[in-house]
């Protein structure tokens, strides 16, 4: 029981990291990036490839790939998003657009990396399990928990301690008002979108350890789980993601302990429950209509 709880916290923090970027994107763009999980997959393949080719430590890969994908994200934003934002129903149309993107990324990943599962089995984070409250945990779980906390802290600082972060929050509150008050909405959104993708790729660099192995078709499933996590916290509120991640992680580990057969059902049930009972998530704003 204690073991499952702590494991849930560590695993939940990792899922918060996966969800964080998706949530930032949704908060700012009001668009759901269905290809989010595919950037996690890219980060994973990057880490595996860098490790096998140059023996680069996954934490270095994490930083590098996050920066690289950030740059890609900026470009991708200007190619895809402004056109969509001008349509009648951008929120819905974007779902389809990013689904298409997800297909393309998956297809390219298959061409580049093949279909076989890839992972890193060498104990790069040390062999010995780390003991928390007398319970032994794989070292990499602790590392990924710390990385997640650091990423959350950085996003928090970005949003609340920088000028552009202030603008970002203004856009999140209301696109129209932000635009009127002279904020460059596209610039703010492009950066938020790119940070979102960078965070996904960063989470991906740890995926070979946390998710068993990397395959090109990993993306869609991860995106859906990440959704459950961020809705639990609250869509559009990046900091609420932590709460969502923790609830998801702990509930998953308890399910795996007591009712393993139903554990996959969990994220969806939680999501439905939260949406119907308190649809704004645990930390969110009004989302219901008529």
């Amino acid at each position: 029981m204690l073991y499952a709880l702590i494991a849930g916290v560590l695993f939940g923090l990792y899922y918060a990291l996966i969800g964080l970027g998706l949530n930032l994107t949704f908060g700012v763009l009001r668009m759901v990036n269905l290809a989010h999980g595919d950037f996690v997959m890219i980060g994973g393949f990057a880490a595996v490839t860098a490790f096998s080719a140059w023996h680069l430590h996954p934490l270095w890969s994490l930083v590098l790939v996050a920066v690289l994908i950030f740059a890609v994200g900026i470009a991708l934003y200007y190619v895809l998003v402004p056109r969509i934002a001008a349509t009648k129903d951008p929120e819905m149309i974007s779902l389809v657009l990013f689904f298409g993107l997800s297909q393309v990324i998956e297809a390219l990943a298959v061409m580049r990396f093949g279909n076989n599962t890839q992972s890193i089995y060498e104990p790069v984070f040390g062999k010995a399990p780390v003991s928390i409250l007398g319970q032994p945990f794989p070292a990499v779980w602790v590392v990924s928990g710390l990385v997640s906390l650091l990423a959350l802290l950085l996003v928090y600082l970005y949003l609340y301690r920088t000028r552009i972060g202030y603008s970002t929050r203004a856009v999140m509150a209301s696109r129209e008002e932000a635009e009127v008050s002279g904020i460059s909405v596209h610039k703010v959104s492009a950066i938020a979108f790119a940070i979102g993708l960078g965070l996904a790729a960063a989470a991906g660099a740890l995926a070979p350890f946390m998710l068993g192995g990397i395959t090109p078709d990993l993306g869609v499933g991860l995106t859906i789980t990440a959704f459950a996590v961020i809705v639990l916290g609250s869509l559009g509120n990046p900091v609420g993601t932590v709460a969502g991640g923790l609830i998801y992680g702990i509930a998953l580990m308890l399910m795996q302990t007591y009712l393993p057969s139903w554990s996959a059902l969990l994220p969806y049930l939680l999501l439905l429950l939260v949406l119907l009972v308190k649809p704004s998530g645990l930390f969110g704003r009004q989302v219901r209509s008529a």
């Binding site: 949704f26 009001r30 668009m31 759901v32 929120e91 819905m92 779902l95 859906i224 959704f227 459950a228 809705v231 869509l235 139903w262 996959a264 059902l265 994220p267 969806y268 049930l269 999501l271 439905l272 949406l275 119907l276 649809p279 989302v287 219901r288 209509s289």
Partner: peptide, 25 residues
């Protein structure tokens, strides 16, 4: 039908979750 109380992306995703839940059951 209570899902219809949700709007926009929330509805889209909640209905997705519902379909996955039905599948897993």
């Amino acid at each position: 039908s209570p899902l219809l109380r949700l709007s926009g992306a929330y509805f889209a995703i909640a209905s997705l979750a519902a379909s996955q839940a039905v599948y897993l059951i």
